[in-house]
Design a protein around this nucleic acid. Structure first.
Lengths: 191, 191
DNA sequence: TTCATTTGATAACAAATGTTATCGTTTGCC
DNA sequence: GGCAAACGATAACATTTGTTATCAAATGAA
């Protein structure tokens, strides 16, 4: 799982082995809840195989905010960092193979590597990138129609359209399942 | 302008004076464009007095993404950091008193202070906070109706409702000016 | 396989929102 | 003060989107 990243981290073999040994491998079925609403999230997950959905409960309605696939890391980020009760649920969509690490171990690693400028800068860049991604997704809500957002999704994140059940995609795009069905139907008939 | 922040930064008086001297004070009228669309933004602004709007042009329609008031700092953030052409326009709403600093000077300061853990951590926290703010604003688009978003705005950012022309608020909330008018009208008549 | 569950399409109707146009008020400027 | 531009409210109508209900197809578990 981790050997593919080995050359990206300027660490001694000793440190590398120590850090990667903090991770635990688990296999879980579809629809497994990894982090519950209200729980203080103490785990960070990396996906070896499978796919994960982050959603929250809004007056009984299930609203999806993000999807994650192979090689991405997932946490209830605000809960993980600030120790707040998680506002969101983190749940597998497909049967998945995951690696998790505890917050304690992450903190240990961060404390040690922050003396290494390359890694520190990489971390800061990751944070910026996250912010930019949110900005972009947000902009699409004030500037695009649901149809345009669906077309962008096909273009930019085809994995989501291919692997995720449609009613989750509907709430991710901010429309009802019926309306997403209509959008697809119209697109087909126009072609 | 800066003396109110003096005690928050663990710097020698010498460094403090050097850094604050990098800032330039300007006074500008309302509707002054500070950063144009497509320009590579090399300035960061701090607002002493007045109010600023960040917007972008979407097929001729003027869409507002953020508002800023006194003591906040403003840049076309992605352009400033990554040296991309700015996708947004940064423009004053009211006549304003601003302080600006060049990207070069910001880089100089960042390079020097990154050896100071307190400041580095403060910077990282600021980045996280920005991301959380975007997440929150984004969530409100998938979970709230325009009426609810308007009520939240009154509650959480009364400055915007009080100081910003209504048609800018409409595009910020993602509705037409006519519909925002309707929303206000309904709220009044229900009371 | 068989049956229950999940998923997705569609229709009919209701509600929300956009568009265009008009009008009155406010604001800024000379 | 007076004029032009900006701003905001409202009406009438068009379009989009949500809701509820029904049905068919796909999927998964025993």
């Amino acid at each position: 799982m981790f050997t593919q990243f080995r050359n990206k981290f300027p660490l001694t073999d000793e440190k590398w082995n120590e850090y990667t040994s903090y991770f635990n491998r688990i296999e879980v079925p579809a629809k497994t809840v990894l982090i519950e609403e209200g729980e203080i999230s103490k785990k960070l997950f990396i996906i070896e195989k499978g796919c994960i959905r982050v959603w929250f409960n809004n007056n009984g309605k299930d609203l999806t905010s993000q999807f994650f696939f192979e090689n991405q890391s997932v946490a209830s980020i605000e809960s993980f960092i600030k120790k707040f009760p998680s506002p969101v649920v983190v749940e597998t969509i497909e049967p998945s193979v995951l690696w998790w690490i505890s917050k304690n171990d992450v903190d240990t690693i961060l404390e040690e590597i922050k003396e290494i400028p390359e890694l520190r800068d990489r971390l800061i860049n990751m944070l910026f990138q996250r912010t930019f991604d949110y900005m972009k997704h947000f902009f699409s809500f004030i500037k695009d129609s649901p149809t345009q957002r669906y077309l962008s999704l096909i273009e930019e994140k085809p994995q989501i359209v291919q692997r995720v059940p449609q009613h989750y995609i509907a709430s991710y795009l901010g429309v009802s399942t019926v309306h997403l069905s209509r959008i697809k139907s119209k697109l087909v008939h126009k072609k």
